[in-house]
Amino acid sequence: MRFLHCSDVHITADYFSLPLRKLGWRRWLALAELSVGGRSKAYARAPQTLATIARDADALGADHFILSGDITAYALEPEFQVVRESLGTLAEDPRRCTIIPGNHDVFTPGSHRVGRFARHFGHLLESDLPEHRREGPFPFVRLVGEEAAVVGLLSARVPFVPGLAHGFIGPAQLDGLAALVKDPRLAGRALLVVVHHAPLTHQGRADRYFHGLRDAQALFQLLPGPRYAVLHGHIHQRYHHPATAERPHVFGAGSSTQAGREGYWLIEVKDGQVVGGQKHVPGGALH
């Protein structure tokens, strides 16, 4: 089986054409990152790149498409709309597609309060085993074929102030995940657990305190060995840490639409185990 994993596509609206009063103070601070920091230019072609990646899912025979958060720049309604348009029919079917929110998708209290992510992608948070939900729809489970399942977790929280970009899963979701792992209906299946924040950096270390996944070790304790993989984004680097006896595979998808760094993972599952992955660039070519 094949799973296409991408992340941090950051579809970006034209912020400089919008009235400042509609943006709010949090996005005012982000204007420096968009302009001086070059983020607006880096993601100018993100919609086209994301559409290409979605087509690759069919062309490469992927059984399931996974996007591990930060689908928008700063959680504006038009950004969510463009993500949905770029993915086309792929985003209509939970059997084919899993998307979770990242911290940029809950960037303001208002975007979180009105459920902007759920308005466009809430149907993808449905669960085949809903009794294991503990925090809203999380964790949710998607059974894929006969030998795999995708599990979605929420780590993205509304930041107290911009710049605090850490995440946590929390004891409730971890309790649901623990029950899920023991569920006999998942016996013999590989589990691909999707979370936005990185449990490990590309160097194999914990991320910075105000940027990383606070309860990464608690997550790893529930998922030892090659039956499991944690798929994440947040860090704009693409890497794979193979599983050990104590922890799962870790796949960081990087920023899949960033100019000059475009790409994604094609992850292979065989006989109920995660056996590895290949890096691809949009258009289906190998790195």
Rank of each mutant, 00 (worst) to 15 (best):
L164R: 07
I100N: 05
F140H: 04
L174K: 09
V150S: 00
A149Q: 05
V151E: 07
G152S: 07
H120A: 08
L143T: 09
L174M: 05
S111R: 07
I100A: 06
H120L: 09
G115C: 04
P109T: 15
P159D: 07
F107H: 01
H132E: 10
P139F: 03
F168L: 14
H112V: 05
V150P: 01
G110P: 00
E131W: 12
G152E: 04
R157D: 13
L153V: 11
R133M: 13
Q173I: 06
I99S: 09
R113A: 14
V158Y: 13
L154C: 07
R142C: 11
F107V: 01
R116Y: 12
V144C: 03
D128F: 00
E135K: 13
V161P: 00
E135L: 13
H166W: 07
A172G: 11
I99E: 08
H104I: 03
P130F: 10
L129A: 05
V114G: 07
N103Y: 07
G163Q: 12
A148R: 01
L154P: 00
H166K: 14
L125I: 01
G115A: 02
A118H: 03
V114P: 02
R119N: 10
S127H: 03
F107K: 06
S127R: 00
P101K: 00
A156C: 07
A118M: 10
A149I: 12
V150M: 06
S111H: 05
E126W: 13
P101Q: 12
R133T: 00
A149V: 14
H123Q: 06
L143Y: 04
P130I: 12
N103V: 11
E146P: 11
L174P: 02
G115R: 03
L164I: 11
N103R: 15
G167T: 08
F160V: 15
H166D: 14
L153M: 08
